[in-house]
């Protein structure tokens, strides 16, 4: 479903991604782990289409289409969703209003009829329950004055509303308290299905206890150094990253 081949990308003239190869099948859950600054968010941003990243080589193919040729909103219409590591505040813009615009733009693109206000409200009330997001957040400005954890919860709520086929969750677990983590993880699990692929960037095994990944990858210095199943994450939790780097160095 998603195929990343030899992806090189730089920011401000500095190469960050140095040849990423990754294939993600429908319904799979992949975890990406790795040291700070290794390029995990960069990878997520390049897939979602953020400006300012220059792809110098490689390709990203999604459902057979060249993802890199699309604008960010077009990628969203195709089913790509990014839960931000640092969600953005947009003062004065109603959370619900923004989501309605997004949902209807996508429906329009897919040739479906736009939802009317009633249908939409009903739908988002249900989705809010899924992540136990208090109704009061629906009518507040987008992330405006939300606490760190509330912002993260809001991201997964948006994911539930937008029903992506590829969800990139960038450190959704950081900032969530213990109970919130459980609730949000349950929300994500409820959204798992045979079509929907999920890529989780995380630093902690904790999240993976709740959302069991099919694959775990170690991204360090712009490359995927090692891939494995959920046991790799447990090993990383115990031993850190150095041994992976050493192993990779020895292999060269």
């Amino acid at each position: 479903m998603l195929k990343i081949e030899n992806l090189h990308a730089s920011v401000a003239g500095k190469e960050i991604l140095k040849g990423i190869n990754l294939t993600i099948g429908a319904g799979e859950v992949h975890a990406i782990m790795g040291p700070n600054g290794s390029g995990k968010s960069t990878l997520a941003n390049v897939i979602a289409g953020r400006d300012g990243y220059e792809v110098t080589a490689g390709s990203v193919t999604y459902h057979g289409k060249d993802l890199l040729a699309m604008k960010p909103e077009e990628r969203a219409w195709e089913g790509v969703f990014l839960a931000f590591q640092y969600p953005v505040e947009i003062p004065g813009v109603n959370n619900t209003y923004m989501l309605k615009a997004g949902v209807n733009a996508k429906r329009k693109h897919q040739g479906e009829q736009e939802l009317d206000a009633m249908e939409f409200m009903q739908m988002i009330r249900e989705k809010a329950k899924l992540v136990e997001l208090d109704q009061s957040f629906l009518s507040r400005g987008v992330n405006e004055g939300f606490s760190g954890g509330e912002k993260k919860r809001n991201e997964i709520f948006q994911m539930a509303v937008l029903e992506p086929s590829l969800a990139l969750l960038d450190e959704t677990d950081s900032g969530l308290d213990i109970d919130a983590l459980r609730v949000v993880a349950q929300g994500v699990n409820a959204l798992r299905n045979a079509e929907r692929s999920i890529v989780m960037v995380t630093h902690y095994q904790r999240l993976l206890d709740y959302i069991e990944p099919d694959f775990v990858h170690v991204l360090a210095d712009g490359k995927i150094l090692k891939s494995g199943d959920k046991h790799l994450a447990m090993e990383l939790e115990e031993r850190g990253y150095d041994w992976v780097k050493d192993e990779a160095a020895a292999a060269v």
Partner: peptide, 30 residues
């Protein structure tokens, strides 16, 4: 109008032009 605000809206499926309108209208709401 931040590049990050625009990208945030776009990543939710809202075109750049609509995103600008939305952000400006939010700014004027009071």
């Amino acid at each position: 109008i931040g590049e990050d605000q625009l990208f945030y809206c776009q990543s939710r499926g809202i075109s750049e032009e609509d995103a600008v309108n939305m952000i400006v209208n939010g700014f004027c709401k009071d």
